[in-house]
Computed example of a mutant assay.
Amino acid sequence: MWVLKHLEPSDAKKKLRLFLHTLQSPIGIQAWFVRLHDLCAHAHVKTVPFELASKPVHKFLNNKLRSAQRSSILASHYDILLDVFGQAAVHELLAGRDFLLSTFAGRSGCLYELRLERSTAWLRREGELTCRLLAADCRTTIAMVSFAVGSASPGGRVCLWIGGFQGCARQDAKAFTIQVTRDLLGLRPKDLLMHVVYTLKDNLGGTDVKATSNAGHVSSKAHRKKKWSADYDLYWTERGGAADGPYIFDLPVHQHLRTVEDVAPAKRRAWRARHALIHRIVDDIATFHPARTASQT
């Protein structure tokens, strides 16, 4: 197979295991290899990232998904990126470069950035794209959301699949996150990322938003004896999500946003300032296109 011959340098045992997995699910995996060959040809990629080629044979996005579904989501994900962002942008993503979605200031004047990148390292199991909220001055990651956009079956509905949220990794993460929330006029970092997710869903032609539950998270078995630092089930329920079995939540097609009439008069000034910030960020992302955005490291 072309893909197996053009994988990036990796352990021979890993390549053998990948080959054996293709025998266990030959139709789905081989169909993914064909699409991956086409992707690399369109994006002018000569060496196939091993972890990308092997994604359908591992837990990815959600525990409920079968190998054929993972293959279908990945294939349609890159078809969409090629169509919307273009060949050059996909080449940049596969090369490990990121894109600046938005830059904005908090109440204190501190600058923040939203960056879109291909999911790497341990995040690659949670998605194929990651949006990262950064404090620009210290380059500290405040929060991240990992996802993919695609159809779980050929010709099916295109969904944005959220595989996981990650928070700040600093020792004082809780205090730092509270400080950032106050600086962003009361806008929680996770809630900000959800505005990004919904805007990208529309940009990429998605119809629905599906999110992993606690049980559906790809690391749930590894952490089943530990307390989750983030309760996905609770968060999705708060956002109007409905459980579709134990593994997946269906989120509303559009976010429910309060109007100024829903806010107490004493808090309306702060509400207007917060929503002006949200609208600015959403406008940046709605008009984002890699061809008009310089990739920065």
Rank of each mutant, 00 (worst) to 15 (best):
A12H: 13
H254Y: 11
D233Y: 07
G245D: 10
R258P: 00
P26W: 12
S229P: 03
S220C: 12
S72T: 00
V209S: 01
R157V: 15
A291G: 05
F85V: 02
S153A: 13
R182E: 13
I142T: 02
A276F: 05
L193D: 04
F147M: 08
T287L: 13
K13V: 14
T22M: 13
V263L: 02
A273M: 07
F288K: 08
T259A: 13
K174V: 14
A291H: 08
P246G: 07
R268S: 06
H223L: 15
K267Y: 02
L18R: 08
C40T: 10
K174S: 12
V90N: 03
H279D: 14
Q255Y: 04
P189S: 08
R97K: 15
L187H: 05
Y112T: 09
K174A: 14
P56M: 05
V282M: 08
S219I: 02
R157Q: 13
V282C: 12
S119V: 08
G241N: 05
T297D: 11
G240S: 11
C110L: 08
W161P: 01
N203G: 05
G96P: 04
P290I: 04
A41Q: 13
A89Y: 01
R224T: 14
I29C: 10
W2V: 12
A270Y: 04
T259Y: 01
W161A: 00
L134C: 06
A242K: 15
R268V: 09
T181L: 06
L36V: 03
V196F: 05
I178H: 13
E261F: 05
C131I: 15
A88M: 08
H6V: 02
M1V: 12
I27W: 12
R188H: 15
Q296T: 14
L204P: 06
K15H: 06
F33K: 07
R239I: 03
S295W: 02
G164V: 00
Y247S: 05
V253P: 00
R97N: 13
R66F: 03
G109D: 06
V282N: 01
L133C: 04
E8A: 14
R239M: 15
A152W: 06
K46L: 10
F249C: 09
L65Y: 14
T287Y: 10
S76T: 15
V158I: 15
I162C: 06
S108M: 09
F104E: 09
A88E: 14
F147L: 06
D262L: 10
R124C: 06
D191Q: 11
L257T: 09
A148F: 04
M194Q: 10
P49W: 02
D250I: 10
N203L: 14
V158A: 04
P9W: 10
D11S: 12
Q255P: 09
A243N: 09
M1R: 11
R224G: 05
A152F: 02
F176G: 01
V158H: 07
S10G: 07
A242G: 02
I162N: 03
L184R: 04
L116W: 10
V149G: 02
L52C: 03
V145T: 10
G206A: 15
